[in-house]
């Protein structure tokens, strides 16, 4: 009975959306705001990756909000798990075999490097802070799955997370202090297609990359530690 109601509601929503979408052409090229970003984005921001310039510069306030959402989710997870009593710290974990352990020790810094490359060069190649941070966190996932017994240190995790967020907010406040508006791009735009170009965009993306990586690693740490 409940299934029939659910399927009926789903069918109504799908029919409604298809009726509405019929009046909207797919992939039209004369969108108002999109055109402006494509035409003016390169000179106004100096970044080669237009998606990055939209995410960090034109709509940077949304990115700050998204960072706060991720932070809230990670802290909420920590709050719910932290209300239990802490299990005893030194538990016997079964050691993984030699091949797996050596493979992890070899791969872990390589994956970290790939993740760091993605978020440092976010303004030139596809990628950016969130993508790079997720790759860094998957390196830590590899570490938890294979080199068992090594853990992320709690204090340094918190410090990295907080500093990442504060650097982002601080960059915005500098723009406010010099009188031109919050999140104004005040550093020089530099030469196109080099690493040190596009003003504050690489700095913000590096801060975001560190923050997201530390956050997701902390989430994994909370979950895996509780389940032993």
């Amino acid at each position: 009975m409940r299934r029939i109601i659910a399927i009926a509601l789903l069918a109504i929503i799908v029919m409604g959306i298809s009726l509405a979408v019929r009046e909207i052409p797919f992939g039209k090229t004369d969108t108002k705001v999109g055109e402006y970003y494509l035409n003016e984005g390169r000179e106004e921001t100096g970044a080669a990756n237009i998606v990055t310039s939209v995410v960090v510069n034109y709509r940077g306030f949304d990115t700050l909000g998204e960072i706060a959402v991720l932070f809230t989710a990670a802290i909420g997870l920590g709050a719910v798990f932290g209300s239990r009593k802490k299990r005893k710290v030194a538990e016997e974990v079964e050691k993984s075999s030699l091949i797996v352990y050596t493979g992890c020790r070899f791969l872990f810094p390589v994956i970290l490097l790939v993740g760091a490359y993605i978020f440092i060069y976010g303004h030139l190649t596809p990628g950016g802070g969130f993508q790079g941070g997720a790759v860094v966190a998957s390196a830590f996932l590899l570490m938890y799955l294979t080199c068992r017994g090594k853990r992320v240190r709690d204090k340094s995790n918190k410090v990295v997370e907080s500093l990442g967020g504060l650097i982002f907010v601080g960059m915005g406040l500098v723009g406010l202090v010099i009188g031109k508006g919050f999140l104004f791009n005040f550093l020089p735009k530099g030469e196109f297609l080099t690493l040190f170009s596009a003003g504050i965009i690489p700095i913000i993306y590096i801060a975001i990359g560190f923050k997201v990586g530390a956050e997701l690693a902390g989430v994994l740490d909370n979950l895996i530690e509780e389940s032993k």
């Binding site: 998606v51 990055t52 596809p126 990628g127 997720a134 989430v219 509780e226």
Partner: peptide, 26 residues
Amino acid sequence: APDVAMAEAAIGAALVTAIFIIAIRR
């Protein structure tokens, strides 16, 4: 849209699956 593809692959296929598997184990 390579940026979105990268984010979906890293987060959706790797991290979310890992979190679900840990939740199932518990």
